[in-house]
């Protein structure tokens, strides 16, 4: 069962970053993921939406090289994904900052692990400018316990960006934040992606979050986890929060909601 991509729009000329072909994952008898096909091109923002247990987090883990697929092929920048890759950045629902490290040490962790302490020291200036970018200037030497939830997630964004990844894999990164902060963080995320022409793949529970951020929204259904539809969002960039009042926005929302409702009873 392949996904039904309704339109190959939005710059199919740009080079593909991620190519997934017939990706499936079985846990024993249980089919967690079945025949996922998708192409993420340079500079595109894709979202995956679906009810809990539809396999969207499994899909993200497979893409990140954290767990192998049972079937199918995952290519990233033309090379097969056979383990963790340095050219991706990941973010999770929890900020996962380590309390024994200062904010800047947390941000430099990927550099320290991959290239050693000296390289981390050399990258410090880049870390400081990233902190400034997300509005955390002056917090570099504080410990995470002194940061609020939104500030901690912003520090996690810096940590994701420190190794200058081409692709961002985001597992419900802001769902633990309150709605006001989340809206703001989503706009920050868009700005970061547009500035660097980075591609992003977001797993989310929120339909409006998916629509406001994405070029394509993949709607998934559970048992077996598969992409039932991929919807192209034709709203101009950069997106702004007041676009939620546009009629087109509402139409996308109701279309996705209908798909989710039918998926839920399959």
């Amino acid at each position: 069962m392949t996904s039904r991509v309704r339109a190959e729009t939005a710059g199919s000329s740009s080079r593909p970053v991620y190519e997934l072909a017939n990706v499936s994952k079985y846990f024993g008898e249980r089919v967690a993921l079945e025949g996922v096909e998708l192409t993420l091109r340079e500079g595109e923002f894709h979202s995956v939406i679906g009810s809990s247990g539809c396999g969207k987090s499994t899909l993200l883990k497979i893409m990140a090289g954290l767990t192998p697929p049972s079937k199918g092929r995952v290519m990233l920048s033309g090379t097969p994904v056979l383990g963790a890759r340095p050219d991706i950045g990941m973010m999770f629902q929890q900020a996962t900052l380590f309390p024994w490290r200062t904010t800047v040490q947390n941000i430099l962790l990927p550099v320290e692990v991959r290239e050693g302490r000296a390289a981390a020291e050399a990258a410090k200036r880049r870390a400081l400018s990233l902190l400034e970018l997300v509005g955390l200037k002056g917090f570099e030497n504080t410990y995470p316990s002194q940061l609020s939830g939104g500030m901690a997630q912003r520090a996690a964004i810096c940590r994701m960006l420190i190794s200058e990844p081409n692709v961002l894999l985001l597992d419900e990164p802001f769902s633990a934040l309150d709605e006001i902060t989340r809206d703001f963080m989503n706009m920050e995320l868009q700005r970061v992606c547009l500035e660097r022409n980075a591609s992003a793949f977001l797993v989310t529970h929120s339909i409006s979050e998916a629509v406001i951020l994405s070029d394509i929204v993949h709607v998934m259904s559970a048992r077996p986890g598969r992409v039932v539809s991929s919807i192209v969002i034709n709203l101009p960039r950069p997106r702004s929060l007041d676009m939620v009042t546009l009629p087109a926005f509402g139409e996308y929302i109701s279309e996705i909601r209908n798909l989710l409702d039918t998926g839920a009873f399959l």
Binding site: G65, G83, P86, Q94, F98, V113, R114
Partner: peptide
């Protein structure tokens, strides 16, 4: 924490690291 372990895996940390 499970997420912390995933993070370390995703940045390619060795077992000793």
């Amino acid at each position: 924490d499970e997420n912390a372990r995933m993070l370390f895996k995703s940045i390619g940390a060795s077992r000793l690291q």
